[in-house]
């Protein structure tokens, strides 16, 4: 099943001044359950593409469909709801709420979705278990290592039961052990729960584990290698 379809995505920054063509007609189809890495040099347009797929930014031209919904036609408020319910985000610098514990950081999204207290409690516990950080559930981000924080970020991304997770350079700030652990966790979730992960990354360790690698240069897809074992 096609989860994400992009057609002719173009993004031009500063169109009225000195235009920067970040994306130039990207056509992509990502199916459910894929473990995809979008790679390319700095400034190639990886993050821009991820932002557009994630509904954080709007393309200059082209269309993005998520499960058949055209994001172009969604108002800002509907887009916020769409992100809340359909997309999980993992950011390079974790971006956890510093005044919340790990459990609160994960549960917060579900409160936004108005889930029941029991459901939130159970799911938070299960998610923290699945990312191997249940012992740290009552610690705040500043009491955890970078790897632990990124695991909380993954649990948070999954808390809303999203259709797919977008991870922008998730391992950029992690050491090698934490990177391996995080990739294990995400690969496991991909296999067991059929969760779709899309990464933008420079990290060869991530690229090596990805089932599909899309390479972008100068805003264009230059290669799309699918070594999927699914």
């Amino acid at each position: 099943m096609d989860l994400i379809v992009t057609k002719g995505i173009t993004k031009i920054y500063n169109p009225n001044k000195i235009p920067v063509h970040a994306l130039q007609g990207i056509d992509l189809t990502i199916k459910k359950g894929e473990f995809t890495a979008i790679v390319g040099p700095s400034g190639s347009g990886k993050t821009t593409l991820l932002n557009i797929i994630g509904g954080l930014d709007r393309q200059t031209e082209g269309t993005v469909w998520i499960e058949g919904t055209d994001l172009t036609n969604l108002s800002d408020n509907k887009l916020i709801d769409f992100r809340k319910n359909k997309i999980g985000f993992v950011f390079q610098s974790y971006n956890l709420i510093p005044v919340f514990t790990a459990a609160e950081n994960v549960g917060f999204i579900m409160l936004l979705q108005k889930r029941s207290k029991n459901e939130i409690d159970t799911r938070v516990l299960n998610l923290l278990k699945s990312v191997g950080i249940v012992e740290q559930m009552n610690k705040r981000p500043n009491q955890m290592s970078g790897g632990q924080q990124q695991r909380v970020a993954v649990a948070r991304a999954l808390a809303s039961k999203p259709k797919f997770v977008l991870a922008d350079e998730p391992t950029a700030n992690l050491d090698s052990k934490s990177t391996t652990d995080l990739l294990d966790i995400m690969e496991n979730l991909n296999k067991k729960e059929d969760m779709t992960f899309i990464f933008s990354t420079h990290d060869q360790r991530v690229i090596d584990r990805a089932h599909r690698v899309i390479t972008i240069e100068d805003g264009k897809v230059v290669s799309d290698v699918n070594s999927s074992i699914n």
Binding site: V99, F100, T101, E104, M110, L111, L112, I120, V124, M137
Partner: peptide, 25 residues
């Protein structure tokens, strides 16, 4: 059994963030 501390509604959570944010700096 472990207990999570998520036993509020969204308004309670906003108040909690706001209150803790005061003491961040």
């Amino acid at each position: 059994m472990r207990q999570c501390a998520i036993n509020e509604n969204i308004m309670g959570m906003i108040i909690k963030i706001a209150w803790r944010n005061i003491w961040r700096n």
